[in-house]
């Protein structure tokens, strides 16, 4: 089994080189993306939690580290924790984000655009990193299941409070109506 997989959850990590002179524009664009439902990630099916991070350069520690590595170009990290298989997700990323994908990865070298499915998938796979260890606390649950279960639990809490003191027949009929 892939090291990127835990249960049915998949850890995608993509590190693409940013085109010369584009770092600031990309940073500004990412910083200005909408939150919540306004985020382009809200349109990518199966995404639990994801991020973009501009990595401007590598850190230097001292402490016996003699050489300071420098990146040949700053990198854009995209990491996502999602449901199911990689190719299905990349297709959802391509079609769900569409032009919003181009507005981000268009600042990266060799990005082919979102219109060609095969080229988009090949690009993401070419810059993908494999996890050494992936931990998912609830890797058996899809996004839909997580949301439905959380909502159902909250419904039960409300029901338990409202149901106090009801006679048995009313309690049963209300339960069957609610759940």
């Amino acid at each position: 089994m892939s090291r990127n997989v835990s249960g049915q959850a998949y850890a995608l990590t993509v590190l693409t080189p940013i085109t010369d002179g584009h770092q600031q524009a990309l940073t500004d664009h990412l910083n200005a993306l909408g939150e919540g439902d306004a985020s382009p990630l809200a349109r990518v099916p199966g995404t639990h939690i994801a991020r973009w991070v501009v990595i401007d350069d590598l850190k230097f520690q001292g402490h016996g580290q003699r050489h300071h590595d420098k990146l040949s170009a700053p990198r854009l990290l995209f990491s996502s924790n999602f449901d199911g298989d990689l190719d299905g997700y990349l297709e959802g990323l391509r079609t769900g984000m569409a032009e919003d994908a181009d507005a981000i990865w268009g600042h990266c070298r060799d990005y082919p655009g979102h219109e060609n499915s095969g080229a988009f998938r090949a690009y993401m796979r070419a810059y993908q990193l494999e996890a050494a260890l992936f931990f998912a606390a609830y890797g058996d649950q899809t996004v839909g299941e997580v949301k439905a279960n959380v909502a159902q639990r909250r419904r039960l809490i409300d029901f338990a409070l409202e149901g106090q003191g009801l006679d048995a027949a009313t309690l049963k009929s209300r339960f069957l109506e609610t759940f």
Partner: peptide
């Protein structure tokens, strides 16, 4: 490194709650 954009499908839910 600080994230430039961070998104969760269920921002109000904790791991314990899930």
């Amino acid at each position: 490194y600080v994230a430039n954009h961070y998104w969760s499908a269920y921002p109000g839910a904790t791991t314990t709650e899930i």
